[in-house]
């Protein structure tokens, strides 16, 4: 799911096959323009994923920055493994690689925060008085956030990747380093939990 105000997902502007190997080669050569291009191509997607995972915009920015810097650091190894013109180069998808890194970073941070706080990540409540429309939108936003953030980390990642980023199950499973069957099971549990949580919200006074 992508709102009209948000940029199109990375799949819409995916480079042609083999192009990512050329970008990796430029990154390995420490070309800042290449890194800027990667941020332009994939930064928004990673930010959305990270934000919906953590519920925190600053945390999401840190995750995207860390993912991009890791790409910068690992570019020589990636370029060596996927030399331009080789069969491996055709299989290289830097977008998928970045999604995997960002998802793992988000899960790691959520787990670390849970260990520190001893519970779920606290939600940020906005107590300021707002107009009715804004209140209604805010309530819906808060409800969605509450539903998503109430999910366990991996179920949350499954919903974010498949529902919000509209990734096919296979790509989402790859981004989470899972086999497809395990991912589909996880996704099934996540949807069930969401529906049950929504039903519980509706039953609440």
């Amino acid at each position: 799911m992508n709102t009209a105000t948000e940029p199109a997902p990375a799949t819409a502007i995916a480079p042609p096959p083999g192009d990512d190997a050329a970008w990796a080669e430029r990154l390995a050569a420490r070309d800042p323009a290449a890194l800027r291009e990667m941020i332009a191509r994939h930064g928004a997607t990673l930010h959305r994923v990270a934000y919906r995972m953590t519920g925190d915009a600053h945390e999401a920015e840190d995750i995207v920055q860390e993912a991009m810097l890791r790409l910068w650091d690992h570019a020589p190894a990636i370029a060596a493994k996927h030399a331009v013109g080789s069969q491996a180069a055709a299989r290289l998808r830097l977008g998928g690689w970045l999604k995997r890194v960002a998802t793992n970073l988000a899960i790691d941070r959520l787990r670390r925060a849970r260990r520190i706080s001893g519970g779920e990540v606290p939600e940020e409540e906005d107590d300021a008085p707002l107009a009715d429309a804004v209140i209604e939108a805010g309530e819906r936003d808060n409800l969605a956030r509450a539903l998503v953030l109430a999910l366990p980390e991996r179920q949350r990642a499954a919903i974010v990747l498949t529902y919000y980023e509209e990734l096919p199950n296979a790509e989402a499973a790859e981004a989470m380093d899972m086999n497809i069957k395990a991912f589909e099971s996880l996704l099934h549990r996540a949807r069930t939990a969401l529906r049950q949580a929504l039903t519980a919200q509706g039953d609440a006074p």
């Binding site: 799911m1 948000e6 930010h47 934000y51 919906r52 999401a60 936003d141 409800l143 969605a144 929504l198």
Partner: peptide
């Protein structure tokens, strides 16, 4: 409900 969870730019 889920569509209401918007991500900032």
């Amino acid at each position: 409900v889920l569509d209401g969870y918007r991500a900032p730019d």
